[in-house]
């Protein structure tokens, strides 16, 4: 069973993977596993917020501010599903508990 992301978790980009922007989005590619994913413009914004400092909760709050006509719960669910997928594909890493990301 997949572990659900918690609001207090911090995520950072896997620097072994490559990020290539193109038109209205970007490709994420892991040269080792071959994993490849295209993310759209919003996905790029969310991915770039994963700096090891911001929590998942911080990120969903920031996204919510830009989509006031959509319920906060819906945005939180969608952002978490997106981030969970990037974690599963190893484009993002969870920061160890206790590491404040600084």
């Amino acid at each position: 069973m997949e572990e659900y992301l918690q609001n207090i978790e911090r995520l950072s980009q896997n620097t072994d993977c490559v990020f290539r922007e193109e038109e209205d989005g970007a490709f994420l590619f892991d040269p080792e596993s071959g994993n490849l994913k295209f993310i759209n413009g919003m996905g790029v914004n969310i991915y770039q917020l994963c700096d090891g400092n911001m929590t998942v909760g911080d990120i969903t709050s920031l996204v919510s501010e830009n989509y006031k006509d959509i319920s906060g719960k819906k945005i939180e669910d969608d952002v978490k599903i997106f981030l969970q997928e990037l974690v599963k594909m190893e484009f993002l890493k969870k920061e160890e508990a206790g590491n404040d990301g600084k």
């Binding site: 490559v18 290539r20 490709f27 590619f29 071959g34 490849l36």
Partner: peptide, 17 residues
Amino acid sequence: IPRNLEGICSRCIFKFR
């Protein structure tokens, strides 16, 4: 294939596909 592809194919992000 694809790990030992050469030239541009070794550098392409689509090489596994």
